[in-house]
Write a protein that binds this DNA or RNA. Structure first.
Lengths: 121, 121
DNA sequence: GGCCTTCTCAACCGAATGGTTGACAAAGGC
DNA sequence: GCCTTTGTCAACCATTCGGTTGAGAAGGCC
């Protein structure tokens, strides 16, 4: 629903049928009819799915007489992978920082408790 | 809407607010109130967003008195990247095959047209 | 025990989604 | 010039989604 491309790409791929279509288009271009054949839905429904994929920039449709061959535009994937990688990396770094902090806390604890414990008991 | 995890993850990230929340959680854990503060929506709305992220496996919520700290589960990203990479790779390979076919066609054409063209004109 | 904070649950609302059917445009095949 | 194929457009329908308000559970604080 939101109109930025990243949202549209994610939303487009949130549907199993559309992901399947993308999978088949990765193998090779295909017409709407060819793409619709395997599914138990009308051609119109598939046409709608293709429109969603097109709006997301994942698919382009050319023209061949009555037919409309669909082509996968794989570059848009980069948009997603970049977004994902950013937070994957951040989360990883954060994990390492956390480990470092925990390690330091443990050191401090030892410095504090070791003498105290020995003196108190 | 579909109940497989991949769909849920993609759908969860199709919303800018939720992507933003993920971005903030990558920096560090946060409570619902803290996460809600920057947005012009009610805490309930953010709570709903967090539920969506949780159902997708992207976020886990623990308990600290009344507060419910949220934690980013970065591993789920792998699910997406794996799916994406698969078709990125396939599309690339297909491109290379296409190039090869085109190159071969050009060779065949030359073998056919070169002698004919010389004889016809 | 009362109060305040934090958060979730439930009901509701308007808009978008995924599907259908029906009509029709566009382009070959006969 | 018709008829069939291929696909889109338009209207409709049920469901989901992102948001709201209102109520209430859970757990400190005084």
């Amino acid at each position: 629903m939101p109109d930025d491309q990243l949202s549209r790409v994610f939303a487009a791929l949130a549907d199993p049928t559309r992901r399947d279509i993308v999978g088949r288009l990765a193998v090779g271009d295909a017409t709407v009819g060819q793409l619709a054949a395997p599914y138990d839905v009308t051609v119109q429904a598939v046409s709608k799915h293709l429109r969603v994929l097109e709006d997301a920039g994942l698919v382009s449709r050319t023209r061949d007489a009555q037919r409309r061959p669909c082509h996968l535009e794989a570059e848009v994937f980069d948009l997603m992978t970049k977004w994902i990688e950013r937070y994957q990396r951040q989360a990883e770094e954060r994990y390492q920082r956390l480990d470092a902090v925990l390690a330091r806390l443990q050191d401090d604890e030892q410095q504090q408790t070791d003498p105290d414990e020995g003196a108190a008991s």
